[in-house]
């Protein structure tokens, strides 16, 4: 199944700062929790220093299904292009330490930033994070998480037969 992109923006309240990665069952191994659907609790689940994060919100293109889109479907095809980008980022993130240097990372960050600004989820300069969540029926999983200032790759096999979740959480950026 195609990876899904979520963003979390900082608000004014202070909160804890903890990195996180998911395992096959989609539960977090740090202070926060997250599941395969990409939802997470707010308290202590963010890496956004000195601020309380909002909930994770999914970035989704408004793809409308109509018969006209059989011949003209730019938004739908852009959604496919983005899915391919996210899959590539998940793949590339497994084989590099410097995730932020990846073009796929920069593009996904750009998409997140644009979406936040366009939808007035935050003002310019606000801290945000994005994460990618992919689920598949295949019982293999590598969770990837990054904390502020250091990139950490944490991998682990999924339980046999479980629906695997792969999650990538970005570094903190500014809108």
């Amino acid at each position: 199944m195609a990876p899904r992109l979520f963003v979390k923006v900082a608000s004014r309240t202070k909160s804890a700062n903890a990195g996180r990665t998911t395992n096959a069952e989609g539960t977090a191994n740090a202070e926060g929790t997250a599941n395969a659907e990409g939802t997470a609790n707010t308290v202590g689940s963010a890496n956004i220093a000195g601020t309380a994060p909002s909930d994770w919100r999914q970035i989704k293109l408004p793809v409308r299904g109509s018969w006209f889109s059989l011949i003209f479907n730019p938004t739908g095809n852009l959604a496919h292009a983005r899915n391919n980008l996210y899959e590539r980022l998940l793949l590339e993130a497994q084989s590099t330490e410097d995730v932020e240097a990846l073009t796929s990372y920069k593009l996904t960050e750009h998409i997140s930033r644009e979406h936040i600004l366009r939808n007035n989820w935050a003002r310019a300069g606000t801290k945000f994070q994005f994460k990618l969540v992919a689920t598949s029926g295949v019982a293999t999983n590598i969770g990837v998480a990054t904390n502020i200032g250091e990139a950490t790759n944490i991998g682990g096999p999924a339980a046999a037969g479980a629906v695997a979740a792969q999650e990538f959480v970005s570094e903190v950026s500014s809108v």
Partner: peptide, 21 residues
């Protein structure tokens, strides 16, 4: 023709980001 008309309606990845590679 149809693909190209669709492509006109979509902004590609920012050139500033992809130029380097």
């Amino acid at each position: 023709v149809l693909q190209t008309l669709e492509s006109f309606a979509v902004a590609p990845w920012p050139w500033a980001i992809v130029e380097g590679e």
